[in-house]
Computed example of a mutant assay.
Amino acid sequence: RDMAMDTNLIRCGLTAAFIFTVFGKLPVPQNVKMHTINFKNLLQWSPVTYHKGNVNYSVEYQSYYDKAFKKHAHFKKGCTSITMTECDLSILSVMVGYYLRVRAEYENETSEWAVIDEFEPSVHTEIGPPSVVVKPRLDMLDVNIIGPVNENNYKSMQEYFLDLAYKVSYWKVGEEEKVESINTNQKMTTLTNLEAWTTYCLKVEPVLHNRKTHPSSIVCGTTMDNGRAPVWQVIVTLLASICVVFGVTMGIFYSSHYIHRAVKHSFQPSYNLPEHIKEYLKEPSLTSQFLLPPPNMYEESFDKLSIISDIQQSFDNTNIDMNTNMEMVEKQP
C-alpha cells in the first residue's frame, strides 16, 4: 500500500507540474545572451511559446555605478513590448558595465525576468573583420588593411584597443595546405619573396589578447616579374603579330590585284590573236626569219635608190635652168 501511495503521489505531482507548465503563468525567456561585434550590441533569446497567444518582450538595463551608488536608481528601458527576439543595445557606453534583463509579456501577464549579471562592451565585444585591398607590384603584393570601426560612430577600433594587430595568412593557389603568415600592426604591409606570375590568396585576421576576432574575406592577386612579360608571352605576342601582319599584307595584295584586273578589263577589253601570230610568238627565231628581209636586200635597194635619186634630181635641175635661160633669150629684143 505504501508503495502504491508513493507512486500515486509522484503521478499527481508530475501531473500538477505539467498542468502548471502548460496552463500556468507566462514562461521566462531562455538562452539569453549578448551578441556584440564592434560595439554593435544585440541582446538575443529564444522565443517563448504561450498557450494563450503570441507574446511580446521588454528589455531593461542598469549600470554597475547606478546600482552601487544610487539607492533609488531604476532600470532603464532598452526595448518595450517588441515581438522580435532581440534588442539593440548599442546605445550603451563603451567603458561602462551593465546588468541586463528581459521578460515575456501577454496582455496584463508578465513572466519573471531573465537576467544577465555582467556585460561590459569594452570587455565582451568581438573584433569584426577588416577590409583588404591587394595590389600587385613586381614580384610582390602590397596589402592595404582597412581596420574595423565602431558600428555606432565609425571610429576605428584601434582607437579603443591600441595593441590591436593583424595576422596576414597567404598561400599559392593550388597549394592551400602551405599557408604562410606574418604579423603586423601597420595598415600597409608587403608580401615579398613571391614567385613571379603566380596567383596568391590571403586573408587578414585581427589579433587582440583574450578577444574573439573575425577574419576578412579571402582576396587574391597575381604577381608580376619586374615589369617584364614572361618569355612565353613574348613569343606568343610576336607570333600573333607576324600572323596579323602577314594576313593584312596578303589581303592588300589580293585586293589590289583584283582591283587592277577589274580596271584593266574595263578599259582594255580582252582580244584573241590569230593562230599564225601565236605560232610566230611561240618560236621567236622563225618569227624574225619570216618577218625581216635578208640583209643584201637592204644594201641593193639602198644603193640603187640613192644613185637614181641623185642623178634624177641633178638632171631635172639642169633642164629647168636651160629652159629658163632659153625663154629669157627669146624675150630679149
Rank of each mutant, 00 (worst) to 15 (best):
I19Q: 11
N8H: 07
T198R: 04
P274K: 14
P29S: 09
E180T: 13
L43E: 03
Y61I: 02
V132N: 03
N226L: 06
I320T: 14
G97P: 01
S255F: 13
M157D: 00
V96E: 15
W232M: 08
E279R: 12
M140F: 09
A114T: 15
L292D: 08
H214P: 00
P27N: 08
S288I: 06
L138Q: 13
N317M: 09
V245N: 15
E275V: 04
K304S: 15
L281F: 07
H265Q: 14
T237R: 13
I277L: 11
K278N: 15
D321M: 12
N108V: 07
S46K: 14
M5G: 00
D321F: 11
S58N: 03
T222K: 10
T80L: 10
R103N: 04
V149D: 02
C243I: 15
S181R: 06
M3L: 09
F290E: 12
T318R: 10
A262K: 12
Y50Q: 03
Q186S: 15
T189E: 05
R11V: 07
R103C: 04
M250L: 14
R1W: 08
F315M: 14
K203I: 06
G147F: 02
V329D: 15
M326K: 01
H260S: 10
W232G: 10
L9D: 05
P269H: 02
E195T: 12
V168M: 02
L273A: 07
E300T: 07
N31A: 14
N272W: 01
E327N: 14
T198Y: 01
K167D: 08
I277H: 11
T36C: 12
Q233P: 00
Q158H: 10
V231T: 12
C79F: 02
Y64F: 13
N193Y: 10
K282M: 08
M34E: 05
F69G: 05
S111A: 06
P129I: 07
A16E: 09
S169C: 11
G53V: 00
M34P: 03
T198Q: 03
E176C: 06
V94W: 01
K212F: 05
E60D: 05
V55C: 04
K33S: 11
A229Q: 12
S46Q: 11
V94F: 01
E205P: 05
N323Q: 07
Q62H: 01
H74D: 13
D88H: 07
C12L: 09
W171V: 09
S270Q: 10
F69C: 07
T249A: 15
N54V: 09
Y65P: 04
I218Y: 00
T125A: 05
I37Q: 05
